[in-house]
Design a protein around this nucleic acid. Structure first.
Lengths: 335, 335
DNA sequence: ACAACTTCGGACAGCGCTGACATTTTTGTT
DNA sequence: AACAAAAATGTCAGCGCTGTCCGAAGTTGT
């Protein structure tokens, strides 16, 4: 007697001496069942260790599940999992569960992964677009599955989206540097081709243009090779004949690199990162911060709203950023 | 024509002029289908935007899914997330997906959450036990669902488990401190009641006993109130009339606090943390490190093994830890 | 005592798919 | 050309559940 089989409604019904429909009523919550029978059913269910089969229930109910999918490029990025935590939190409030799928940051696998999720009949789809084209989701959207694009807008697809105030956040950071006299400001970004980085770069240039600096190319280190360490990018800026007096980073990977290189430098180089990180306070690193959980919560909320009102218009939400002054961004230029 | 309904096998079959079973064969991969019909079917499926319904497939196949659940206390802890990443990675190799559920670190909700997952007919259950008793899973285990306990052993339940070398890892850290002369060594831990912390505490005491130090109570700061900051615990150690010359922390929360307090202290106090963290290298913090993803990968592998051979014996796996010397743990005691 | 109503419980079909088995078509062999 | 073997396709039932419809009790008022 190893692997006996699982009890079904019918088994419970038989043991309790009622019809399976009555058992169904007990477990579905609603329905007219006398407390007497209800108790008998529950007791029988307990004896048999019965658990309702959600697969069957969902199939019967029209083939939708209580599951929302979140498609991520790479789980190891702490940013993503804060977002995931926000999503999970928000979904749990509505009794929904989150499945997590990753594409390994490979555009090719995105459609494959999403396809598999749709086969699972997920209730909604939240994704951080990696591929250049999400038009393959158009059909699904028309069938009523909410699609929310997170952190970057989807391409060739009408979908709700939640992004950060990338441009303005970075511009604010750079402005706070120009305000205290910096003019030669470096910008490091890797990978630089993606939406968020392009936006932040635009913000950087915009803020410098406001103080009359238009030739920024020499101070931009835009890479798209994960093997190029941010440390290297920072160092190459410092090695310039006329090195920057301040540096900003496009993401927390860049910040980590910058921190390692810029510590104990004389004269000190001002620095502001994008994305807050653990111990940034202990290291006195100024950053453009935001609430990544809020990003997730908002994404989930958009999906739920769309579920509640399928004909609602597409929404674009921007999550605010704010500059946190901790010291590294307040270092004035030398002399 | 807003929300039209989803195409089924039968719809595709009709359009392609074949039986639904043939369409099923095409999508199930296997089966003998002439390339001629296959193409016709695929074309029809594409026209109708058909996606096989996994709900129905799984129900028909005996009520199991391709889904493995990972039950976590709190998603915001980066440690858990790396574990989750490892699980996801390993499962993806076998075509399985991971659903993530959280219990908000509340013992009460554990059973509720697990129950819901079982109703979803997850293929296996990986969980970080929070409650004091996992006996409620016994029935499920007998039905053949692999249950793997992660980071802590399950209680009152025979289940595979993957834990860290907590005791030995901490003992190694303390030994490396006693080796360079430290005798007054502080230990901070919060929450201290949980298995991992108790083990690490045991390792700490063991290593001190080896050098004849048996009265350690005064140097132990064992709290179970999340509101007590690790900074406070560290400070209270430093305020002792005879303060410790070295401090070890039971988790990375403690490390973050210790880093903040111990920086720029004169004379310096040696420190070793448990759990590596971002920028620990930049801060020269020595830690007991391990690979959290490996923890997840191993857990997933155990579940898969059990799935392959349901009668296999229960396994307990320990993930090795290693002491990383970065400077903070190599500071000798004063004089 | 009887109609009118409410409450409780059951019979049945079918959600979309696939396993077992049956049937037709194709291919190979002599 | 005749036949067997192999390949391709079809038929049918049913996975576990619930929506719909219906019947059998119990309850109330006159």
């Amino acid at each position: 007697m190893t692997t006996q089989s699982r009890a079904t409604l019918a088994d419970v019904a038989m043991l309790a001496g009622v019809s399976s429909k009555t058992v169904s009523r007990v477990f579905a919550g609603a329905g007219n069942v006398s407390s007497d029978t209800r108790e008998r059913v529950l007791k029988a269910a307990k004896r048999l260790r019965f658990r309702p089969n959600n697969l069957a229930r969902n199939l019967r109910r029209g083939g939708v599940t209580n599951t929302v999918a979140f498609v991520i490029g790479d789980l190891k990025n702490p940013f993503y999992f804060h977002v995931a935590a926000g999503i999970e939190r928000e979904l749990a409030l509505r009794g929904l569960t989150m499945v997590l799928a990753t594409t390994d940051d490979s555009p090719d696998s995105e459609e494959r992964v999403v396809d598999a999720l749709i086969s699972q009949r997920v209730r909604a789809l939240l994704l951080i677009p990696i591929a250049d084209d999400q038009s393959y989701l158009e059909g699904e959207r028309q069938l009523g599955t909410p699609v929310v694009s997170v952190d970057r807008p989807a391409r060739n697809l009408v979908a709700d989206s939640v992004v950060l105030q990338n441009r303005q956040g970075m511009a604010d950071a750079v402005r706070s540097l120009t305000a205290i006299g910096h003019r030669r400001i470096g910008f490091i970004s890797n990978p630089s081709a993606m939406y968020t980085q392009r936006e932040r770069l635009a913000g950087y240039r915009e803020a410098l243009r406001e103080v009359g600096v238009t030739e920024t190319a020499q101070w931009e280190r835009l890479d798209d090779d994960p093997d190029i360490s941010p440390e290297l990018a920072v160092q190459s800026l410092l090695d310039l004949p006329d090195p920057p007096t301040a540096i900003v980073a496009g993401n927390n990977r860049g910040s980590a690199g910058a921190v390692r290189v810029l510590r104990n430098l004389e004269p000190p180089v001002a620095f502001i990162g994008f994305d807050d990180f653990e111990l940034a306070d202990a290291l006195d690193i100024s950053v453009v911060a935001y609430d990544p959980m809020e990003l997730g919560r908002t994404a989930a909320r958009l999906a739920l709203e769309h579920l509640a009102d399928p004909d609602s218009f597409t929404k674009q939400v921007e999550i605010p950023t704010r500059l946190i002054h901790r010291g590294s961004g307040e270092i004035p230029p030398p002399r």
